[in-house]
Design a binder for these strands. Structure first.
Lengths: 195, 195
DNA sequence: TATTTTTGTAAGTAAGTGATTACATAACTA
DNA sequence: TAGTTATGTAATCACTTACTTACAAAAATA
């Protein structure tokens, strides 16, 4: 029996979690199945995480770090606001497709468990995203690119609907989703709102 | 022990399901808790539904009948397309708030169980909604109310983001959601897209 | 009113849950 | 190389799950 350090095992465990929930569903994510997937016994799992809930919280933190870091870079870049918003949306969409709607699966878990802390962390992620969008829109308005009368907050709400709807579609109807130019099309509509 | 007919019991059971999942979360929706809530034993539950899954499927059908019927009436009415779309969106939003995000909770259940049939029925509900919106938008275009060049399908996708985002917010952050004029604000943005 | 049908209960079932225990051994350190 | 620590296992914990069974009694029907 090979022995690996906690850091490596934690990564393996979290990877296995994502594999299970995206292939067999959250309902099959038992510590039993998870241990089998990793190739260890259940006891080993609890050597590296203090609880199953802790594993899930750690995954939420990973999403926060990965996705929000990408977004921050784009939002803080020196591009023009319209280019920035398009790039932002496309990066957002790409992440969701690549990760098979992971955020919404985490949402389902939080809802299922009625876990306040998990819900709070997920809400935080959404809030961060929305604020980045708001910032970009305000920049565009200040630069005279977009209409001064539009309310950045409301448009940010409208924006958020795009990735969230995509998420839902990816889960409910994984196969039929046609992604060609999805982000460009949606960006086109957002621009009509902003102009 | 009072004995009620299946029809009445089924309604009681489904009502109890909604109470449990909107107060204690899906994870607490066991047949044990459900029977307690209804005030019968577990055995009685299985007299009126053949399985727990059957109860959930029946609730999905109720949502389909209730919500989609309201929507059909509005979509088929003789109002002008802009009035119609506003009314449609506000009715949609009102239903979700009143039912505390029931649709997304059903989504979580379907995801959790990885239940194909449940997913399909939920996707159907979304598709119906989207098609009603598409129909209204096309009417508005034909009447010269809105721009001929806009793609009704894409706008319908954008529309769907509004109730879905609302749903998510209702679950993640029930208290802080401020609903005053929410549907009017969002309608204002949709009109900018359409004009 | 006598009989059948429907609706209820109490007590189970087998299977699964997250987590813990006592113990073993690989890997690191002095 | 000897001793310590980190990482593993196998077995089991107490508890929950959806669902079933054998039986009782209320309600509907004749």
């Amino acid at each position: 029996m090979e022995k690996l350090n906690t850091e490596i095992r934690q990564k393996q465990i979290k990877k296995a979690v994502l594999q299970i929930i995206s292939t067999k569903g959250l309902g099959k994510l038992s510590t039993r199945n998870l241990a089998d997937k990793v190739g260890v016994t259940e006891g080993a799992l609890f050597r590296h995480f203090k609880s199953k809930r802790d594993i899930m919280l750690s995954i939420i933190d990973d999403v926060k770090n990965d996705l929000l870091e990408q977004m921050k870079k784009i939002a803080d870049s020196n591009l023009k606001a319209n280019v920035k918003l398009l790039k932002f949306l496309c990066a957002h969409v790409r992440y969701l497709i690549k990760n098979k709607g992971i955020t919404i699966l985490l949402f389902s878990e939080a809802t299922y468990m009625d876990d306040k802390e998990m819900k709070k962390r997920l809400f935080d992620i959404l809030s961060f995203q929305k604020n980045y969008v708001k910032k970009i829109i305000k920049e565009g308005i200040d630069d005279g690119l977009w209409n001064k009368k539009i309310n950045a907050d409301n448009v940010a709400v409208l924006y958020m609907g795009i990735p969230i709807t995509l998420n839902i579609e990816l889960i409910l109807n994984r196969k039929e989703f046609k992604q060609e130019n999805f982000c460009r099309k949606m960006f086109g509509l957002l621009e009509r709102v902003l102009k």
